[in-house]
Write a protein that binds this DNA or RNA. Structure first.
Length: 762
DNA sequence: GACTGTTTA
C-alpha cells in the first residue's frame, strides 16, 4: 500500500522541522495529537456491538434444504412473491447480446467460497452496470441471515448495493434493471430493484438490488459502519476517482480486513468496476499481503465502433483557428448524417468559437449543408442543453456541439461521428497553503483523450481529430489526478473522523493527500469546533457530518440555532441558495440586459453584500405564490437553481427539526416578505463569521483588498453585489484563482467582529 | 468584468 510506505517517511519529516505547534487566534494546539502514530496498521470500524458468537441461521426453510437444488428451483421458492420471474422476455434477448453475458458463470464463481473481492474492467457498452447485480442476487451468499451480535439477533445481508457517481445514472439504471428483472419501478409497492439518491428514494418492499449515489452510501456508513443490510457492494465507475468513491474504497477495505465482528462474522463481497485499465493500483489496494485470497480480475470487451484517430503534424498555436478549419474541412468532405462534437475548455472559448463558426457558415454556398452550432456547458439552461441532444430540426443540416468536459462523462450526445479534441480542460486545484482553489486550463490525460475519442464511436465508425501532435499525446499523463489530491480535504477528513476513524493517517486510501493539506484541514476543523484539542471528534463535529453541506456552512447552521444569533431559518435560506449548484443570478452579458432587469433586481440587492442579497431573493421568491417562473424570468434568476434551493431548504429544515435545532416546523409558504433590519443583518453576518472567520480581507489604502490570513491581494469577483464597492472589511465564502485572485460571495463586515470570532468570543 | 464537472438526511 502506497500510504504504508509513505507514512513513516512523513513522520520523520515532521520530527525534523517541528511545525506541530500551531497558533489559531489565542489558542495553541499541538498537531502531534492529530497525527499520532498508530501501531495497528488499520483502525477498525467501531464495533458498536461486540461480536461474541456467530450463529448463522437460515432465514427461510429453503436455505436449509440440500444445496443440490437447481438454481431455478431455489429461485422460485426463495422468491418473496411470484413476480420474481426470469424477467421481461423481450429484454432478455438484448441482455444475452451484451458482452458480459457470457461471463456470468465466471463472475459468480469468482465470488464464491472465500473470494470476497472481484475487479471487473469493462469498456462502455459491456453491460456491467446492469447485469452484474442481476447475476449475483441468487448466489447463496446473498441471502439475508439472522446472526447474533453480542446479545442482539440482527439481520445481515440480503441486498446488493451498487454505487454511481451521478444521480441520473443511479435512477435510470434502476429503472432499466427493474424492467429487465420483471418488477418495473413505479408499478407496484413490491419489487426487486430500487434506488436511493438525494431527494429521491424508491425502495420497494423486497428490494434486493439498490442503486445509490456514492454520497448516499457514505451517509449510510454513518448510521451503519458495517453495512449490515448488504451482502455485497458493487462500486461502479471507480476510474472517475471522485473523493467519495475513494473514501468508499477505504471503508470497504476496512470492512474486508476487519474481523467482521459487526457483521456477525458474515463477509461482505465487494465488486469494483472500472472502465479503464489502471488495474494494478486498484488490485494492489484491495490485495495486500495479509489477505488470504487474491483479488480476482475480469476483463470484458466493450461494444464500441472503431474510431480513426488523427493528430496534427505540428503543434497548434491558435486553437480557435485550427478548430474552425477542422470543422469546415469535415463539413465539406464528410457525408451527412454525422454530427461533430468538439471539446473545448470553457464557456468563453465556446462562445467565441460559436461566433466564428456562425459567421463563416453564413458565407457558405446554398448547395452546401447548413451548420447548426449548439453550445453545451453546465451553466447553460436546461432548454439550451436540450438543443444539443436533439437532432437538427431542419434537414440538410449538420450539428456542431461545442462542449466542455460535461460531454466526456456526464452526458452523451447522440448522432456524433466526428470528435475534435483541443487536448485541454479546466481543472480545479486546491492549494492548501493559500486556502484557495484555482481553475485553469491544463493538458488532459491519455485516459481523458481516449474517453473523448470514444464519443465518436457510439453509433458507428467515427473519426477523432486531435488538435495536438502524437508526440504531445505520448507526453500526457496516463490518468487524471484523482480528485482527493486536487480538492480541499476538509470534508474528507471530517467524513473519516465522523465514521469512527480517529487516526486519519491510518485510513487506507488509494492516493493519500499531502500531509500538509491534511494538517490544514485538521486545524480548520479545530477552528470550527469539530475536533477537540486532542484531535478527537466532538459532538459538534458529529453534527456537522449530518448536514449535506460543507463543514463551514454546517458550523454556521449550528451557530444560527444558538439563542445569541437566533437566525436559523434565514441561514437555511441562504445556504440553500448557495449550495443549490449554479449561481441563482444569471450573469448578464450586455448593458441592455442589465438595464432591463435593474428595476426588478434593485429590490433584491442589499448593501451588506451577497449573503443578504441571497436571503432577500429566497424570501421574496418564496413569498411569490402566483407565478414563480415569471418572477424568475423578470429578474433573470435561474428557476432550476431556485427549485433546487427549495429542495435543499426543505431538507435542511428537516434535519434541523430532527436535531432539535428547530423547535417546531416553520410556517408554510407563502409568508409575507419582511426585510431584515440592519441590526438583524449584522447578527446574521456575525453568525457566518463562525464558519468563515478565517476568510476575511481588509481594504488597503490603495483600494485593494488584502486577506487577514496570508496577506494576499484579492479582487471582488464581478458576480458579487460588492464588486466595485469599497467596504472597510469583507468576509468571503469562496476564493478562486482564474484570471486573477478573486473572492466570491462577499459581505461587508466590521473588523471588530472578526477579532471577536477569532479570539473565541463570538 | 468573468463563470470545468459532480455530489450529500
Amino acid at each position: 500500500m502506497a500510504q504504508d510506505e509513505h507514512r513513516p517517511k512523513r513522520r520523520k519529516t515532521k520530527a525534523e522541522n517541528d511545525t506541530s505547534i500551531v497558533k489559531i487566534g489565542n489558542k495553541t494546539i499541538s498537531l502531534s495529537a492529530y497525527l499520532q502514530p498508530q501501531k495497528k496498521p488499520l483502525e477498525q470500524p467501531p464495533a458498536d456491538q461486540q461480536y461474541t458468537t456467530v450463529e448463522t441461521q437460515p432465514e427461510s426453510k429453503i436455505e436449509s434444504e440440500p444445496p443440490k437444488k437447481s438454481e431455478s428451483d431455489t429461485r422460485k421458492k426463495n422468491a418473496p412473491k411470484q413476480h420474481i420471474s426470469s424477467g421481461d422476455p423481450s429484454l432478455l434477448k438484448s441482455r444475452k447480446a451484451l458482452p458480459i453475458w457470457t461471463h456470468q458463470n465466471e463472475i459468480k464463481a469468482s465470488l464464491r467460497d472465500d473470494n470476497d473481492v472481484l475487479l471487473i474492467v469493462g469498456e462502455t457498452g459491456s453491460g456491467k452496470s446492469t447485469q452484474v447485480p442481476q447475476f449475483l442476487i441468487d448466489e447463496p451468499w446473498c441471502r439475508k441471515k439472522k446472526v447474533r451480535v453480542q446479545s442482539d439477533t440482527v439481520n445481515v445481508g440480503g441486498m446488493i448495493a451498487i454505487t454511481q457517481p451521478r444521480r441520473v445514472a443511479a435512477t435510470t439504471l434502476a429503472s432499466r434493471v427493474s424492467r429487465e428483472i420483471g418488477t418495473p419501478l413505479g408499478t407496484s409497492r413490491e419489487g426487486l430493484v430500487g434506488y436511493s439518491v438525494r431527494f429521491e428514494h424508491n425502495i420497494p418492499k423486497g428490494t434486493k438490488i439498490k442503486f445509490l449515489t456514492e454520497g448516499m452510501l457514505l451517509q449510510e456508513l454513518l448510521r451503519d459502519p458495517n453495512l449490515r443490510q448488504y451482502s455485497a457492494v458493487i462500486v461502479d465507475e471507480i476510474h472517475e476517482r471522485s473523493v467519495d468513491v475513494d473514501l468508499i474504497a477505504g471503508f470497504l477495505k476496512q470492512i474486508l480486513l476487519g474481523d467482521k465482528a459487526g457483521r456477525g462474522g458474515i463477509p461482505l463481497k465487494v465488486v469494483i468496476m472500472s472502465a479503464t485499465a489502471d488495474v494494478e493500483k486498484i488490485q494492489g489496494f484491495f490485495n495486500p499481503e495479509n489477505l488470504t485470497s487474491s483479488v480476482q480480475l475480469l476483463r470484458i470487451k466493450g461494444r464500441q465502433y472503431p474510431v480513426d484517430i488523427k493528430h496534427t503534424t505540428k503543434p497548434v498555436s491558435d486553437i480557435q483557428e485550427a478548430l474552425l478549419k477542422r470543422i469546415f474541412d469535415i463539413h465539406m468532405h464528410e457525408p451527412l448524417p454525422g454530427d461533430i462534437l468538439a471539446f473545448l475548455t470553457g464557456q468563453e472559448e465556446i462562445e467565441a468559437a460559436q461566433r466564428l463558426i456562425e459567421e463563416y457558415s453564413a458565407t457558405l454556398a446554398s448547395d452546401v449543408p447548413k451548420l447548426l452550432v449548439c453550445p453545451l456547458y453546465g451553466q447553460l439552461s436546461i432548454q439550451a442543453q436540450q438543443d444539443a441532444f436533439q437532432p437538427a430540426k431542419k434537414g440538410f443540416t449538420r450539428k456542431v456541439v461545442l462542449a466542455t468536459n460535461i460531454a466526456e462523462t456526464s452526458v452523451t450526445v447522440p448522432g456524433v461521428r466526428y470528435v475534435i479534441d483541443c487536448g485541454k480542460a479546466k481543472v480545479k486545484q486546491f492549494r492548501s497553503q493559500l486556502g484557495m482553489e484555482s481553475l485553469l486550463a491544463k493538458a488532459i490525460s491519455k485516459s481523458s483523450a481516449i474517453q473523448r475519442t470514444g464519443r465518436a464511436g457510439r453509433e458507428g465508425p467515427g473519426k477523432c481529430y486531435r488538435l495536438y501532435t502524437s508526440e504531445t499525446y505520448d507526453s500526457l499523463r496516463d490518468a487524471d489526478l484523482p480528485e482527493i489530491l486536487r480538492n480541499d480535504v476538509l470534508g474528507a477528513v471530517l467524513t473519516i473522523k465522523a465514521r469512527g476513524i480517529n487516526n486519519v493517517l491510518s485510513f487506507p486510501l488509494m492516493d493519500f493527500p499531502d500531509l500538509e493539506s491534511v494538517e490544514k484541514a485538521l486545524i480548520q476543523l479545530h477552528f470550527l469546533g469539530a475536533l477537540a484539542d486532542d484531535g478527537s471528534i466532538t459532538e459538534t463535529g458529529k453534527k456537522l457530518a449530518l448536514f449535506p453541506v460543507s463543514a463551514p456552512y454546517g458550523r454556521v447552521l449550528l451557530a444560527a440555532s444558538e439563542p445569541q444569533y437566533d437566525c436559523l431559518l434565514e441561514v437555511i435560506d441562504i445556504i440553500a441558495c448557495i449550495t443549490a449548484g449554479e449561481n441563482i443570478f444569471y450573469q448578464l452579458q450586455s448593458e441592455e440586459a442589465r438595464e432591463e432587469v435593474e428595476e426588478y433586481r434593485k429590490e433584491l440587492y442589499r448593501r451588506e453584500g451577497d449573503i443578504l442579497t441571497y436571503l432577500t431573493t429566497m424570501q421574496r421568491y418564496a413569498a411569490e405564490n402566483a407565478d414563480r417562473t415569471g418572477w424568475c424570468r423578470k429578474r433573470k434568476v435561474n428557476t432550476r437553481t431556485m427549485k433546487q434551493a427549495l429542495n435543499i431548504r426543505k431538507q435542511l429544515r428537516g434535519i434541523c427539526l430532527k436535531e432539535k435545532m428547530l423547535a417546531e416546523p416553520p410556517p408554510p409558504d407563502p409568508q409575507p416578505f419582511v426585510p431584515m433590519s440592519p441590526e438583524g443583518a449584522a447578527q446574521l453576518l456575525r453568525c457566518f463569521l463562525r464558519g468563515f472567520g478565517t476568510r476575511c480581507a481588509l481594504l488597503a489604502p490603495d483600494s485593494s483588498y488584502v486577506t487577514v490570513q496570508g496577506k494576499h491581494v484579492v479582487a471582488v469577483h464581478p458576480s458579487s453585489a460588492l464588486h466595485g464597492r469599497k467596504r472597510e472589511s469583507i468576509m468571503f465564502l469562496e476564493h478562486v484563482f482564474t484570471q486573477r485572485s478573486y473572492v466570491k460571495k462577499v459581505s461587508a463586515v466590521q473588523a471588530d467582529w472578526i477579532v471577536e470570532v477569532m479570539e473565541g468570543r463570538g
